[in-house]
Nucleic acid binder design. Structure first.
Lengths: 334, 334
DNA sequence: TTGAAAGCGCTAACAG
DNA sequence: CTGTTAGCGCTTTCAA
């Protein structure tokens, strides 16, 4: 717990010189530098980051606010962000909003109080208030969900196109009556729904309101929505869900109804998970480049920290379609 | 970004008085208190936590160092810790060691540099060095894995007994040749192995070295170990794995070999996950009280922060056996 | 090239 | 009950 003062005394120099050595300032005589370095080593000195932060009015901590850490997508993101952040000497504070705007706003304040350098955020629903907050504080990068009209750095998936390709794959395999269970209150769910509808139209099909459900992006909601769809007088031949939690719920419903995949109903979704390839049949899905998303977001954030006035950018990454058994070509039996 | 000085000026008092109001000190005249409160509100003043930390030589941040955030067990733990920490006004820094002692020691230093109040840690392998570190810094609570002989607060599962019950359940259902795939380099894997062996002995069976594998607690290792076990001249009738990652790998191997569960081979494990009840048949397992573990660990930590000299305690929680299809009573066919 | 000194925002001892 | 003051550990003018 030696302080810079003790190092200075041990090396017979002023604290300013120690500070200069620490900062790798070129204006220090080599001899002095050596002495200081030696003292640092002998005293096992480590700079007090708190003091440094107070002085600099800025920490080397960044925040990550996700909407649901139980969602493997966000777990993967946090891995990536953590990796990249620590590589750059930053620590990571992680928070979880449970899709609750109130919690989001609380955590945004926590971040402000913690004097973080910046925040990576998957905004929950109406982040208008939050956004205003953002503008008066730290650097921000938005991930996963876009905030329309906001002048903020973003890293997003090409949601419309991914959903289009996923739906087209079903269509190509002979499925026609395709239902979609979409996460509500986020641009992501809406965009994926758009891609789904575009694909249907491209195949001359009319999207049916009955087959599109917007629900909270969680297992229970996916389960309930799927159950209701499967109980329709004319049930869908395929189910598309917009995240892995919804897919898990849908799968549960399919099991409960005693249906077989894909013979009775196909299932496709977004996001690779441990289980998607473990269930029988394995699930066809759009894999997001999670690591790259997290890494890119961190890079954008630290760039903005370094240069607050640079133009904002919006990075769109492509999803990858992984075709597996849950959407095998349809065997017509009607 | 108003500071305490500006509040003091606005209220026509000294910064000390503002500080006292902030600390809820009783020695402030109500009239003054009112004025200060008003100024605080008007200026939207929020205390600078950095300055406070520098002064107090201690932050209101705690660290969580887990060995693998991809392990849903640790994801659940981090949820719980985060919840409890924020309830008490603490922030959470999360790190991930990937079971790498080097990363662990780096992150322990990060924690020290960040002046955290304390750290919750699932120690990786030989944390002797780490432990010494610990003793000279912040409060520590160890979770999931015990450090023998260490005088540290711990929150653990009753591993031996849980594994005993899990194994006994298999034995009661008619399985005899039971293999175990255990996480290596942690007391957890070893203790669970002990419970497994005790159960075998209680049933008059001799544990066979051939059927016990210690491997890195990850999917790939679980896959490889299971594959080798299933290729044995006399393959096991049941597989027990000591965490969900190993189970996922084992399941993959079972699928690849085209075996049916439980007819060809049963599978039981530790840790509830999304997928364990989603695969067919669902997996029998010991569920850990993850939320309680995280909550208890946080409580112990904050208690120790408040009272560093209190006697250390070791909290042992019970696992819950969830019986599902993957270990259904054995149909003898020999 | 180096050092003295001020000050980041806060709290707590001490005086009054 | 309230204000003055010193100082937490660091960086950065400003002078020398």
């Amino acid at each position: 717990m030696a302080s810079i003062k003790e190092v200075a005394r041990a090396a017979g120099v002023s604290t300013a010189t120690v500070s200069r050595v620490l900062a790798n300032s070129p204006h220090v005589r080599p001899a002095l530098r050596e002495r200081v370095l030696k003292a640092i080593k002998e005293l096992e000195y480590r700079p007090n980051l708190i003091a440094r932060s107070l002085r600099a009015q800025q920490t080397t901590t960044i925040g990550l606010i996700v909407s649901d850490i139980r969602n493997p997508f966000f777990t993967a993101i946090s891995r990536a962000v953590e990796d990249s952040a620590y590589e750059e000497g930053y620590s990571l504070i992680v928070c979880n909003t449970d899709e609750d705007p109130k919690k989001e706003s609380i955590y945004l304040n926590v971040m402000r109080d913690a004097n973080v350098a910046g925040v990576i955020l998957s905004p929950t629903g109406p982040t208008a208030a939050g956004l205003r907050e953002l503008e008066t504080g730290f650097a921000v990068v938005v991930i996963d969900r876009s905030i329309p009209d906001a002048d903020v750095d973003m890293v997003l998936l090409d949601n419309v196109d991914s959903a289009y390709r996923l739906t087209r794959h079903l269509l190509e395999n002979g499925y026609r009556r395709i239902a979609a269970i979409c996460g509500e209150r986020s641009t992501t769910g809406r965009e994926r729904c758009t891609g789904y509808e575009q694909a249907l139209r491209a195949y001359g099909l009319l999207p049916s309101a009955e087959l599109v459900r917007f629900v909270p992006p969680q297992i229970e909601a996916g389960y309930a929505a799927a159950l209701r769809l499967l109980e329709l007088p004319e049930p869908p031949e395929a189910l598309l869900t917009t995240n892995s939690l919804l897919a898990a719920g849908a799968l549960e419903a399919i099991h409960e109804r005693g249906l077989r995949i894909p013979d009775d109903v196909a299932l496709v979704t977004f996001d690779e998970t441990t289980w998607a390839s473990l269930v029988q049949p394995p699930i066809t899905l759009i894999e997001q480049p999670t690591y790259e998303i997290g890494k890119t977001a961190t890079e954008l954030l630290l760039q903005r920290v370094a240069e607050p006035e640079r133009a904002t950018r919006r990075v769109i990454l492509k999803g990858r379609l992984l075709v597996r058994g849950s959407s095998a070509p349809r065997v017509h039996c009607g």
